[in-house]
Design a protein around this nucleic acid. Structure first.
Lengths: 332, 332
DNA sequence: TTGTAGGCGTTATCAT
DNA sequence: ATGATAACGCCTACAA
């Protein structure tokens, strides 16, 4: 049961491989209708599927793009992936999924794997210390788009970002307008650079309002457990606080659970603000008040951008910034 | 900036491509240490990365497995994907992500795409009418593992399944034991065969208890909106009901929101049971009482199974059934 | 309008 | 212990 090749088709029709190749690749402007039809019908009856690998060896293109993300089971990234894959698929590419867990070694392994597969381009959400991996890509001439987080030394590379500082300011302004003054801020792991950016935003705006207090800044991991732990910590260590701004939705949800269990009422006693606007934020009751990143649009944009680069389309903006949007739910 | 090839390495070291190839592929039992070391050092200093595509053309293997799922942004599938990718990665494979949306045409397109990339194997969660697509795979000799849903005519193929009937029975028994007798059942789209299986389970057990009533069966889509809509319908059409068993967690969450908004108390007035046990079910407050599928284990198992088949390992069980497990949260 | 021939980078089969 | 050579299936000049 050997696989059918172009040669088989050519022999059956009684033409050369070249002719078949041209028809298969729609470069058939001057192939007679008759030949074309014969070829098509034999392709159909044999169920011939071209060998993309052989094609790739010639063209140095694989028709695949790689997507290196921290963790697909995190809703933020799975929503993003869906957008990336949708656009890629529509434009004739497919997507190889890589979960880096923010681990530089894993990330490196994937980068090399993708290169070895003649990947056409990569969408990279950097973990930590991604400079050297970005460098490998650069040295190998693989186009890539950076997403969500910066890579030192690659600030001029194409990228899709979210205006984190502005997002934080939005959130704080809202909480301030609600009369809150002791606003706790929970950042994600400081090793990830967007978090520093968010902390800076917090510092700036709180200082502007004259209510900045360093001891109101906490750090945790972007998970439900992270949210629960840090919230217990906040309750135990903080003299007074009247609002908590979590820098992702999942943490906020963990926080709300913890507050309720420890007999705080949300939003009556404490206002809660999340960050990301994942679908999940609309599932809890009351719905989470959060700073929305347009996740699906960001994914679409990144996917479109990398493919434009691959296909050498003229690019208007190789760096795209998305702006925040507050979703007012019932928690603040 | 042409990419470095084996030929380049061979020339630099002063050996033949063959020798380099053997070293790269660890088939170097009888290559002198000296040569090996020279080759390794040149590989390192040049940053050589083997071309997997060229290799694939020879070996007819790509080192990739395909994963065809309905929708990665559905938490059930993203959790599953994570497991699949983890195992695949550990065993030296990578994963190509395909969102079928349960659409047979999309599914077909992906099947052919994957074949054209010399995919080594596929994990297929069938949408609707997947017989012909499974047939294409069969004709092309592509190994595949079926997951979650049956494909008519491929019952003997390797597969990883969940005992849906048992799951439903578990849930009903629990609700019955809590004194509930008017238990509404919300199935997913009947076109998807697991749903029929679940309805059958419901019918059986309810009949056994002598409380079966056909008008308590509703159908909806596996989404938050689906859960909301159907719940409004239930409230409006059902004379009396004291529990609702949704056949996935997301619908259940939509249902809870709706019940609350329409002034029902959960669990005081109405007990709610979900199905799946996605992480999300632990995020809401109170936590959802649900029938847990061991999602991560199922993904691991499927991944391991397809790779065992690819590598022709002896397989103990080519069909694996997982059994339900009730998680008692606060909604029932 | 169609065919011939060489090459893409690797692996496999024989040699040496 | 190492090399020469022919595949793998397709694409692409260049020929005819």
């Amino acid at each position: 049961m050997n696989k059918i090749t172009m040669k088989d088709i050519a022999e059956k029709v009684g033409v050369s491989k070249t002719t078949v190749s041209m028809v298969v690749n729609k470069k058939d402007s001057n192939i007679s209708e008759e030949t074309k039809n014969k070829i098509y019908s034999v392709i159909k009856e044999t169920g011939y599927i071209p060998n993309n690998v052989a094609r790739g060896l010639n063209t140095k293109k694989s028709g695949s793009i790689g997507m290196i993300i921290p963790d697909i089971s995190n809703p933020f990234f799975s929503e993003l992936s869906r957008a990336i894959e949708d656009v890629a698929n529509k434009l004739g590419y497919n997507v190889i999924l890589c979960n880096s867990d923010n681990n530089p070694d894993k990330e490196k392994k994937y980068v090399e794997l993708l290169i070895s597969k003649l990947i056409d381009g990569i969408i990279l959400i950097p973990g930590q210390e991604s400079e050297s991996n970005a460098n490998i890509l650069k040295l190998n001439g693989i186009p890539f788009v950076v997403m969500d987080r910066y890579i030192k030394g690659f600030e001029d590379y194409p990228g899709v970002y979210f205006d984190n500082k502005q997002g934080i300011k939005c959130g704080i302004e809202y909480l301030y307008s609600k009369g809150k003054r002791n606003i706790v801020f929970v950042s994600g792991p400081k090793k990830i650079n967007v978090n520093q950016e968010r902390i800076d935003g917090y510092k700036e705006i709180m200082t502007k309002y004259g209510i900045y207090n360093k001891s109101l800044i906490f750090e945790s991991t972007f998970s439900l457990e992270g949210g629960i732990e840090v919230t217990n910590q906040i309750i135990d260590q903080c003299g007074c606080f009247d609002a908590i701004f979590y820098s992702n939705d999942i943490m906020a949800i963990g926080g709300i659970k913890t507050l309720k269990r420890r007999e705080y009422r949300v939003p009556e006693d404490i206002l809660i603000m999340g960050f990301d606007g994942i679908t999940l934020s609309k599932m809890i009751e009351p719905e989470l008040t959060t700073i929305q990143q347009p996740i699906y649009s960001m994914g679409q944009q990144a996917s479109k951008l990398i493919i434009d680069i691959i296909t050498e389309q003229p690019i208007k903006n190789k760096k795209v910034y998305f702006t925040p949007n507050i979703i007012v739910g019932g928690t603040a």
